[in-house]
Amino acid sequence: MKKLSARRRHPLAALVVLLFALAVTGGLYAAFSPSEAKADDSSAQSLAIEEGKKLYAVGCASCHGTGGQGSSDGPSLVGVGSAAVDFQVGTGRMPAQQPGAQMPKKKKVYTDAEIEQLSAYIASLGAGPSTPTKSQYDIEGADVAKGGELFRTNCAQCHNFAGKGGALTNGKYAPALDDVSPKHLYEAMQTGPQNMPSFPDTTLPEKNKQDIIAYLDTVNSDKSKTPGGLELGGLGPVSEGLFAWVFGMGALIVLTIWVAARTAKAKKS
């Protein structure tokens, strides 16, 4: 206890207390916040559509129009399918917070059940790709090497060879694919969110999509192997050059100073 009181006035003490308080608040919120309402499996599809329509009217209609017909602020949602809704809302891109070159990924606003209801409603407006089932994006038995080739032909040009993302015109960008779930990867390929082109099953069959997801799982997940050491962002020569200058030249210049410095003289008197 004595130790604690002695450290109470440490310059970092306030920071520690603050972090602790934040953690506790977050934990309490997580514990007491309303848990996800589990949709009843047997409930009628029409009920979901009805619920989805209500959610839509509150959260989406201001930009996409009351019937999903679109407006100057948002594109039409007729025929985009439930997969598009599941991706956009499931990754938090929708509802949009502010207009910009592109809607960024953020924490999702709706619960999974609500997303299902919204999807059902949008799907009812016109036929489109539907939310994939688990077997569709299952990577069991997928060909990783084939996935790599397909990735380099179809995806790497925007998302970089290791899925680290890249720039597009006028502030738009292809996001990094680091922690995108297989389902969302599948949906993105299928629906082509925002400026990304779509890769429908007619040109990139389901099997190929699984190969691509499997490839990303191998080279771009937290269990990916980087035999050589730090990945340095996986961005190629720019980050390597920066690293060589800062750490390589930095360490070497420190050493030159040590080698050339005068040795301490014996104190006189």
Partner: peptide, 21 residues
């Protein structure tokens, strides 16, 4: 030929907004 599948392409395979090598 669709480079992903090496099958000949039909117009209906290609939807608006898609990209095919």
């Amino acid at each position: 030929m669709n480079q992903n599948t090496m099958q000949p392409l039909r117009p209906e395979d290609i939807i608006v907004g898609s990209l095919t090598p």
